[in-house]
């Protein structure tokens, strides 16, 4: 078992003594943004062209759904949100801190990326995880 929480996805970085952040990969040739380690660009086909950069913690809501039926053990309803980050990159996550009601949610609303425990979920070895969420900014 790990001493502390593990990152929920490979592109969530937890530097020692620093704040967690999300990492993007950008193609040096065409500027396309990706999540997670990769070598080649699937937009322009450039090879060995990727550089890493820190994704912004600020963005706007692009689209969403309100999930009422899920698998056993998953609390519903919740908002599944797609967020365009400032400076590039689009990520998906739970939008929290707002009522799960389409009347309350607006396209383009500013949101902030926040980091917190992964809803108490643990893996088979008992490790806990650090996840990210969106909150209205």
């Amino acid at each position: 078992m790990s001493d502390g929480p593990l990152p929920v996805v490979s592109y969530l970085k937890m530097p020692e003594g620093g704040e967690p952040y999300l990492e993007g990969h950008r193609c040096d040739v065409c500027g396309a943004v990706f999540l997670g380690e990769r070598r080649h660009c699937s937009k322009c086909g450039a090879r060995d062209s990727m550089s890493t950069f820190q994704l912004s913690n600020r963005g706007t809501l692009y689209s969403y759904s309100i999930v009422h039926r899920s698998f056993p053990g998953i609390d519903v309803p919740y908002i599944s949100a797609i967020v365009d980050l400032e400076g590039g990159g689009t990520i998906k996550g739970n939008l929290i801190g707002i009522e799960a009601d389409p009347e309350k949610i607006s396209f383009g609303m500013p949101v902030e990326v926040v980091f917190d425990d992964a809803l108490g979920r643990k893996d088979a070895d008992g490790n806990s995880y650090l996840s990210y969420f969106f909150k209205p900014a």
Binding site: S65, V67, S70, I74, S80, I82, G93, A118, R121
Partner: peptide, 18 residues
């Protein structure tokens, strides 16, 4: 761990709702 309901939803009804 499962990402469903943690990093949004990957179910087909949700994907097509979005």
């Amino acid at each position: 761990i499962s990402k469903e309901g943690l990093l949004g939803s990957g179910t087909m009804p949700s994907v097509f709702a979005e």
